[in-house]
Design a protein around this nucleic acid. Structure first.
Lengths: 356, 356
DNA sequence: TTGCGCTCCGAAACCGGTTTCGGTTAGCGT
DNA sequence: ACGCTAACCGAAACCGGTTTCGGAGCGCAA
């Protein structure tokens, strides 16, 4: 950077005014005559004056910046929405000329230390965190610090803080009901480790719907696997090895569902005909899977913007508990769901009815 | 934020020292006795002192922050990398305790104004930009401002600035050669609008390889479409409507290639048997397309870290031209490439040989 | 004892803005 | 001509750090 940025001082010298006057002129104070204000403004534009944000923020006592804590990308499932989320956050913050700082902890161990450092260093005035655990220590820490934050997702007890989430429980109720309406009764669930609340929510939805439909809750049909396509494939293989394999599988994510499809195809089973599969997320990519994946599509479009607006409102003093937004996912039928009609499955149904 | 952060002033008062002394003690100056240094350090740890970064950065004259200009997400092809890229950038910057600021211009028109504001406001000490155009005004602007920056990708004349890129030309030479080795001679290219240099590079690679293999350069076989799955599908439909349709298609991205696969399947053509398709990117998702997509996989893993390291080095004074890194993509064979063997294609080949 | 140098810390300027406070000037009425 | 008020701007404190400079206090040798 060669040409040093023009500071308030040189602008003032150039105008024959003091820095204080120039500052007030640019910031719209009433005790500046319209004439000089105009003069200052044009001079500022000519010289390309931009206030040094570090100085400004130090002075006004606000960092005018919020931080986003990137989730660790070990599990490949979290990548698709980050770009959209950041874009939305950026839009919301941009309206007030706030900045977006993106950070990630080096390891999950020192994530708390990372947050505390971030907060106390005054670099950010608020924080956005993603994918909370059931009982997330980050949330407790931020509450203890009384620091403004919003959560993309929810914990088990979701009171007293702001969050934006898609109702995973409701989504899986919808998915299961849909499969039941298609005639399925042996419906399996392929999930992910339950430390994340979203995994628990979706499992809850599955269980609720199974019971509500008067179906037996077979523990064999609940498989907790790695949150990836490989995990979905392995879990589905286990399911298919049972004496009475399921005729339908709901998967915790589209990525996992793709693994399930792979397992089915490897055995010559036709997804959507022999075994139905429903995913969750609504990724565009599901259009191109083999066959195209039926899924519960979540409205990811303005999650970022909503979270940004919430956070700014909270920083302005709003009660965080006021800002809790639950969206619903919608069934997006493509080609992996279909009516029960293979002979073997019919057998299973009749057996179940005898037992009842 | 209730409990006000402990400043240098209160820490000094608590110790009976002056702020200057405490600051020097914490920053390792030699003119502080080991005894008081120890005393200051333990007190700082006890009180949880964290220097206010805005004040610190104002004082030392460095923002200790670099900015990343998010590409606009209109074309859905750019999303997959962003998360990985940001993660890598964060790692590189974190080693020196620098921050990462993520911004995006509201519209492409005022992107230049956005950059200038960013630079002059002193919020960032360097910039990372993605997906340059052939002749990118952003790069010219940053060069004029003599501001440190690195580019993820290249422009047509890639001198005098730092970049990290994957050799798209080489990749498409490899892809075409591979198809020729499989017996194909009518090989089509489905590209994207050429304002982006990467689109031009890949087209160049295609053309170079076609010529190098002594094949005719049929303009009909070069289709420029929208950079999306739909674009790929439409372009492929056009290709298949020709009297002599291609027996193989190389696509500018995996997303576009998925559209090509869809077009083939819609006509009952079997990708990899009747018509070969090769994509570019190496997205994991290609494992699950129908059938799994053969592609030129680029090593995206440490792009972010390399770009971050480069940028820091340039900010430290390195000549940008020293930092230019070109990676190669590798052919990742899955199921959409195969030998030429259908009757119609054989005809085409014999015709071509007669002409020669 | 005086003088010298060295160790260690205090004082103050500075980074570039914002904001309060006080004083000068102009304009007005009488 | 005088006083009063309001408009307008200068001066200075302040935000919370960093860094330079100078001086107090000490030990040591002469």
């Amino acid at each position: 950077m060669s040409s040093k940025p023009v500071s308030l001082k040189v602008l003032a010298a150039h105008l024959g005014l003091t820095v204080g006057t120039v500052s007030r002129a640019l910031n719209g104070y009433a005790d500046i005559s319209p004439a000089t204000r105009k003069r200052v403004q044009t001079a500022a534009k000519e010289l390309g004056y931009r206030p040094n944000q570090n100085a400004r923020r130090l002075s006004i006592g606000s960092p005018e910046t919020v931080g986003y804590l990137m989730p660790r990308l070990n599990h490949s499932g979290s990548q698709p929405f980050i770009a959209q989320l950041l874009q939305g956050l950026g839009e919301a913050l941009g309206k007030r000329h706030w900045d977006l700082l993106v950070t990630h902890a080096d390891s999950s161990q020192d994530e708390l230390a990372h947050i505390e450092r971030l907060v106390r260093s005054g670099r950010v005035g608020g924080l956005v965190i993603s994918r909370p655990l059931k009982n997330d220590p980050r949330i407790r820490l931020l509450q203890d610090l009384k620091f403004p934050f919003v959560v993309h997702g929810r914990t088990a007890s979701c009171d007293n803080y702001a969050w934006y989430d898609v109702d995973g429980e409701d989504a899986f109720v919808t998915a299961v009901n849909h499969l039941v309406a298609l005639g399925h009764s042996r419906i399996a669930f392929v999930g992910a480790p339950l430390q994340h609340q979203f995994a628990q929510d979706r499992l809850n939805g599955y269980q609720t719907a199974i019971k509500a439909n008067g179906l037996p809750l077979d523990p064999d049909l609940i498989q907790i696997a790695e949150f990836s396509d490989d995990g979905g494939e392995m879990a589905t293989n286990l399911l298919l090895d049972f004496a009475q394999p399921p005729t339908a599988v709901v998967c915790i994510s589209d990525t996992v569902a793709l693994g399930a499809l792979a397992a089915l195809r490897a055995r010559g089973l036709r997804p959507g005909i022999d075994v139905s599969v429903i995913g969750y997320d609504g990724l565009k990519f599901g259009n191109h899977s083999n066959p195209p994946l039926t899924t519960m599509a979540q409205p990811q479009a303005h999650a970022g913007r909503r979270l940004g607006d919430m956070l700014l409102a909270i920083i302005d003093g709003d009660d965080p508990a006021m800002h809790q937004e639950l969206q619903r996912a919608q069934l997006l039928r493509r080609k992996t769901d279909g009516p029960l009609h293979c002979a073997k499955a019919q057998q299973d149904i009749s057996k179940r009815e005898e037992i009842q």
